[in-house]
Nucleic acid binder design. Structure first.
Lengths: 193, 193
DNA sequence: AAAAACTTCGAATGAACCGGTCGATAATTC
DNA sequence: GAATTATCGACCGGTTCATTCGAAGTTTTT
């Protein structure tokens, strides 16, 4: 029982790559096993089921995302840049994750209520981050905001709105353009005159 | 029997998109049908089998590639640029096609000997194009080549060598860098002193 | 306007596939 | 050398998938 966690990690990493490419349904245990140079049955020594692997992968990816986001906003000083970075990193990551979502909304989404849990948690965290950025901007006299709570919610809602085309129609491009437009609107309505 | 060809075309286009994303095996007739807003059985009115669709798609893509290549070399005058463009377009397209190849080399490649036929044909064509570029460069006194036949073959061999990592290891990156390096070597050995 | 030909599709089918199990067997630890 | 940890091949039963078929709808021909 020396390396159990290390092995789980390896499975998560490899499976993650395949899931992100083909989605949950189209990824087979045989493929994961082959990529790991393992017998298929051996994987079951470390994980209960395909779904458990998927769960672990999503959890793992969610953590990556969280880290990317926090380092992103730390990497710049100006509130405008913080907001801009946050939004872009968030959407880029989401694009990467959209395959997983596609995978889930194939059918049997019944089993995957854990996704809802993660989602709720991250929604709350996102809200906190947004409020922080807004608050920071307010303090630095760059933003003028009445109610940071509701402003944060408004921004979050917009971002969620952008997710939709991202995983309904695959190749809806120019997310960047649209993001920039939204940010422009946001800032021009928010910046001190 | 008014629109048979048009319908076949539509199937080829749609199926092509899905094949290129998921490969032959992971693409189902249901998906193709759904994307076409057609009953699955209806597709069989236009095509004999999934394999026939695949064959048509590959043929179609091969033609696109041929066109891209010829317009690419026409778009510039200097032999050096012709060669450079040709090589880059060729590799970029091949990258796009690598999914199909992956699809085939899953298993039962037995059935797909038509791929070999296409391949051979395009190898010949490629050789002709390369020779043309070389010849043109020679005439313009930019290249100095002893035997354009064998030089063309040498270049083709190199390009084929680059294909290998392209569909064995998915994310072998920096093809561009490697291409540039190869081109540098090629030119410095080929350019008149 | 009936017959013939063309087109679409739901339902059925049989074969392949796939997630998961089980027991045998290495490999490692005690 | 027994106990445990770890790997795997072979198998199972349910599901999926490509393909078929016939019936029904539509257009063209006579």
């Amino acid at each position: 029982m020396i390396n159990r966690e290390e092995y789980r990690r390896r499975v998560i990493l490899t499976a993650g790559q395949i899931f992100s490419r083909y989605g949950f349904r189209k990824t087979t245990m045989d493929e994961i096993a082959k990529a790991l140079k393992m017998g298929k049955s051996s994987i079951y020594y470390y994980f209960e089921s395909k779904e458990e692997i998927f769960e672990a992968v999503v959890l793992y990816e969610a953590n990556i995302l969280r880290n990317e986001l926090t380092t992103a906003i730390k990497s710049v000083e100006s509130p405008i840049e913080k907001m801009r970075k946050y939004v872009f990193v968030r959407m880029r990551s989401f694009e990467k994750l959209s395959n997983y979502y596609n995978a889930i909304f194939d059918k049997n989404l019944d089993h995957f209520d854990f996704i809802e849990t993660i989602r709720e948690k991250y929604d709350r965290e996102e809200l906190a981050i947004l409020r922080l950025i807004l608050y920071h901007g307010s303090r630095m006299n760059v933003f003028s905001i009445d109610n940071s709570e509701y402003t944060a919610l408004a921004i979050q809602t917009t971002l969620k709105g952008l997710e939709v085309p991202l995983f309904w129609k695959k190749r809806e491009l120019n997310i960047d353009k649209r993001l920039n437009a939204i940010l422009d609107v946001l800032f021009k309505g928010i910046l001190k005159k």
